[in-house]
Amino acid sequence: MDKGPLHDALIAGFEALSPQLQAAARYVVDNPRDVALLSMREQARRAELQPATMTRLAKHLGYDGYDAIRTLYKDAMRDRLAGFAGKAGAQAQHQKLLGDGALAAEILASMREQIAHLAAPHALPRLAAAATHLAQARTVYCLGLRASHPVAWHLHYILSLSGGKSVLLDGIAGTGADPIAQAEKDDALLVVSIMPYTRTSIEIAEYARSQGVPVIAVTDSEVSPLALMADASVLVQTDSPSFFHSLVPAFAVAEVLGALIAGHGGERTLAALKRSDAWLDAVQAHLPASTVRTGS
C-alpha cells in the first residue's frame, strides 16, 4: 500500500499540528502498512512516541480512537487485495488507454527499479546475512507455496547442483511438509511468501521456529508474518502495473543467495559442481554446443 486513506488529509493539515502530532502524522504517512498491521503501542514505539499521542492524533482527525484509524487502513489494504479479477479489470482499462507496448514498458521499468532496490546499500547486508545463515546450515529446507513455489525450487536446484544439502518441502498426498519434522537447530528453513501470505507457509515457519530451527525469509515487508519471526529476512518489492504481483525480485534473491552460498563452500562446492557436470554429460541432459545454431 503506497498511500494510506488519510495520506492527503494529513499532508494538507500537517503545518497546523503540534510537533508531537506532526511526528505521529509523519509515521502514519510513511508507514501505511504498519498502521494496518501493527498494534497502536508498537506503532508508537517505532515512532518514538507515547501511545496517547497516537490517540490524540485520531481525535484531532475526528475519530473516537486510534483503532478506528487502524480499521480504516486494514479495510483499505483488504480492498487493495480484492483478488486477481478486480486487478485485472483495472489493468485492462489501463492497457486499453496506453496500448500493449506502453504497458509492457511500464511493467519492465517497475521490475528494473525493484532489482535496483535490492542492490541499495541498506538491502545488501540483508542478503549477506541470509546467505551466511544458509551456508552454515547442515541442511537447508526450502519452502514456497503457490506463486512462491518456483522461487524456492530455484534456490533448491542451485544448492543441489553445488553440493549443498537441500530438501524441498513439496510432495504428493499431503506429505510435502513432513521432512521439516527432522530439522534441528543446526539446519535452516528458507521460506518464501509474499502478500497475500499463504497460511500453510506461515504455519510451517512457526513450527520450525518453535523447534529452534532458524528461519530465513524472503518476503515483502518488515511487518509480514515471516519477517516478524525470521532470524534473517530479505525484503522484495512486489507491486506491478500487472494484475499479478511481481516475483522477479524474489527470483533474483534466489539466484544471489545460491551464488553466495556456493562461494562459501570453496573447494567442496567446486568438487560437487564437477560431479554434476559429469552426471549431466553422462545422461546427455543438454544438446551439444556444436549442434546449437548461433545465427548468421
Rank of each mutant, 00 (worst) to 15 (best):
P241C: 07
T238P: 06
L10W: 10
L98V: 06
G164V: 11
L17K: 08
S290K: 12
P32D: 13
R33N: 01
G83M: 05
V223R: 05
G65K: 07
L169Q: 01
T132M: 00
V283L: 00
F14I: 03
S290P: 01
L247F: 15
F84L: 15
L72V: 00
Y27L: 11
R275E: 12
K185M: 00
A116I: 13
A250F: 05
F14H: 04
H133A: 11
W279P: 04
W153R: 14
H245Y: 15
H117D: 15
A278G: 05
A105Q: 13
V167L: 01
A131H: 10
L270S: 11
L257G: 06
A76Q: 11
G83E: 04
A12V: 07
A90M: 11
L72I: 00
R293E: 14
L155D: 10
G4D: 11
M229C: 06
A12F: 05
L155K: 07
A16C: 00
S18L: 02
G83T: 12
L280R: 03
E184R: 10
E255R: 03
E42G: 04
F244A: 13
L37N: 09
R46Y: 04
M77I: 15
D277R: 07
W153I: 08
R46N: 02
A52G: 15
P51Y: 02
K74M: 06
D64R: 13
L37C: 02
Q284R: 11
